[in-house]
Structures are given as C-alpha cells and as structure tokens.
Nucleic acid binder design. Structure first.
Length: 266
DNA sequence: ACCCAGGGTAACT
DNA sequence: AGTTACCATGGG
C-alpha cells in the first residue's frame, strides 16, 4: 500500500472541470474521486476544499507525471486575469479552474481522430474499448495502446471498437507515427505551423483535429480548434474575431468558451 | 423516426 | 476556390 501524495490546492484549479470539459476522455468520477490513466499510470485523485490528493502516488510519480499533466507550473491566474472581455469574464466566473492538460501526443492525436463527427459520450466509449482491447495492464486500468502496437493491426482488427469510418484513419496515423514519417519531437520543437502541415498528412486529420492535437498533445496554447460549438461562439459573440487579450493563449480562451457554451444548451 | 455530434474526403460545380 | 453528399454509429 503506497502513500498518498498531497499538495495544497493550486490557484485557478478545478479538478472536475479539467478532467470533464471535453479535452480528455479517459477520466470518470466514482463519487468523490476521479479515476483515470495517463502516461501509463492509473491513478485516483480527489480535490478537497484546501488540497489535491493523489491516491497511491509516490512523490516521484507526482513530479515526473502529474505536476506536468495538470500544467501546475503555468500561472493561469495571470492569464485569465487579463481577460477584458465580458463573455470571457463570464465564462471564467462560472468555470474558473479549467486548465489545458499536457496529454501524451499520440493519445491526443488518436483521441481527436476518433472525435470527428462524433459526440463526447461515444468518443469515450470507443477509446475505452480501444484501451481494453489493445492496451496493457489490468482491466479498467489499461494503458492507451501505443502507435507501434496499433501499426501492426488492420482495420478489421479494430471492428470491436465500432469506430465506423474512423478505423482506417487510426491505422494510418499509427503507421505514420510508428515509422517515423511523423516526427513528434520535431513538431514539439518547431513553430506551430510546422505541426499543422505535418499532422494533416495523416488521413482523416484536417485543420480541426490537427489543432486539437497541437493544443492538448503538444501544449501549443496558441492553437485554436474550431468545432461546431466554437463556430457558434464566433458567429454569435465574436464576428470580428477574438479579443486582443487572448493573443498567444487562444487555446485556453477556447476551452473556457467551449465548455461555457456547451453548458448553456443543457 | 429524426437530428445531431469537438470533421474530413472526394466529387462535384 | 467554394459547395455538398457521404461517411458509421449511437446519444438525446
């Protein structure tokens, strides 16, 4: 039985919002704790009034995985405090504490390929079946299968996922990543425009999926994915474009606006 | 039964 | 260069 690792609740941090605002698809709430897998590790996390509790977690795992995953070195308070726009201020007022998770690039790419023309509950289902079928580890705690693993499979092998027309896109992405045709290290280091062009060489990856991959998988926070909800936001609120205060951190504004606008319809 | 979903592709004008 | 049908599947 390992010990828990506990830190004071960071400023501008809300665990439930981070994990359930449509950027990551492998987390679920069991009542008080959030359970999920990232970077090959299963964990349960709990947010209290004053603390963040990482259950069965060593200090080493916190420092090498979770501190980075939750982007704890980034000063979100400073970023959202510079919003001088009424819509953004309202979104932050209602949903303060959303952060852009630093997800694994391959998981982000594969997840958002699956997301196309799909709804979030079903995206989660397909990804869950993908991990259960082809990931490693214990049931319900399996790792996200690597590109190398998926590159050995065929479209027919993916039938149990019920991913529809997306199956062929998953295979193509896995092959191009596994054989080095797509170089994640270079995408990480080069300006965002390189990643945009590179990722769209994959079948089934267009502007939007590329943008999501760059934002969530490579932490290019200037990326600005435009899905049907953001399209509505732009038409309804920003016909002349985003306000100046979001320059350079458009992806963070996007996440607040996306979640805010989606919640309005419920 | 119907419309829609964190879109992309290919085949049209 | 700018539209549009079609793609699998299932949630609401």
């Amino acid at each position: 039985m390992k010990n828990n690792f506990i830190i004071p609740l960071p400023k501008t941090f809300n665990l439930a919002l981070c994990l359930d605002c449509g950027q990551a698809f492998r987390w679920h709430n069991d009542g008080s704790k959030w359970c999920g897998v990232a970077y090959g590790k299963y964990i349960t996390i709990e947010q209290t009034e004053t603390e963040l509790i990482f259950h069965n977690c060593t200090e080493e795992d916190f420092n090498s995985i979770w501190k980075n995953y939750f982007d704890l070195d980034c000063d979100y308070e400073k970023i959202v405090s510079e919003y001088d726009d009424n819509y953004l201020k309202q979104a932050v007022k209602e949903y303060n504490g959303i952060r852009i998770l630093r997800q694994d690039p391959w998981e982000a790419l594969c997840s958002f390929i699956i997301s196309q023309n799909n709804n979030i509950p079903r995206i989660k289902g397909i990804i869950e079946r993908l991990c259960e079928e082809f990931g490693d580890g214990e049931t319900r705690q399996k790792t996200f299968p690597s590109a190398e693993k998926l590159a050995t499979l065929t479209v027919e092998d993916l039938a149990p996922l019920r991913a529809g027309f997306r199956a062929k896109y998953i295979i193509d992405a896995a092959q191009k990543v596994a054989n080095g045709e797509i170089d994640f290290q270079k995408i990480k280091n080069e300006p965002i425009e390189f990643g945009r062009e590179e990722l769209q060489k994959i079948k089934g990856v267009g502007a939007k999926v590329a943008e999501c991959t760059l934002l969530y998988g490579f932490h290019k926070i200037e990326a600005f994915p435009i899905d049907v909800w953001v399209k509505r936001i732009m038409a309804e609120m920003y016909p002349d474009g985003l306000p100046e205060c979001t320059k350079g951190t458009e992806g963070i504004a996007q996440q607040y606006l996306f979640h805010w606008r989606r919640m309005q319809n419920k």
